[in-house]
């Protein structure tokens, strides 16, 4: 696990809907807008992230709202999430929870981690290793194709 000072903070730039597949793409960017990290997620997870970004409060709590509700009832806070690794096109991430100075880390998919981070407004970090290995060029190709088709790109 890299030290916090080498970690790169990212913001969720938006969630794109891939019209060809049953997936959505969460686009993360760094503060200088020089790095882009696209992460493919399932429809339910993508929708959950979009609802939170748009500050939509659904009539009934979604699964990630329920997790936040557990944490707030029990007095835990989500300090940060870190996208730690990419192996065979699968990204891995870790949630850092804390209560009374006690920190716990929990393995999670980035989609769940990001859905929780945008709800708890906690920082999102990525390790430099993940940025080196990301498939950024794939996104550019994908985006240019999408632009040609004139499909809409929902953004936060």
């Amino acid at each position: 696990m890299a030290e916090t000072n080498t970690l790169i903070p990212l913001k969720v730039h938006g969630v794109l809907v891939d019209p060809n597949t049953d997936t959505q793409i969460v686009v993360l960017r760094d503060e200088q807008n020089s790095e882009v990290l696209p992460i493919w997620v399932g429809t339910a997870e993508g929708t959950s992230i979009r609802l939170a970004l748009e500050n939509v409060i659904p009539p009934r709590p979604m699964s990630h709202d329920l997790i936040c509700s557990f944490a707030s009832h029990l007095g835990f806070s989500l300090n940060k999430i870190v996208i730690t690794e990419v192996k065979n096109n699968t990204y891995f991430s870790t949630l850092f929870l804390a209560k009374d100075g006690l920190e716990k880390s929990v393995d999670s998919r980035p989609s769940d981690a990001i859905a929780l981070a945008v709800r708890c407004q906690c920082p999102i970090y990525v390790t430099p290793e993940v940025l080196e290995q990301r498939g950024g060029e794939d996104l550019d190709t994908w985006l240019s194709k999408l632009d040609q088709k004139g499909s809409e790109q929902p953004e936060a």
Binding site: A44, E45, S63, H64, I67, F70, V106, R109, D112
Partner: peptide
């Protein structure tokens, strides 16, 4: 990989 409810249990 843990699904959302597996994560819920782990948490």
């Amino acid at each position: 990989r843990p699904m959302t409810h597996d994560l819920m249990k782990t948490l």
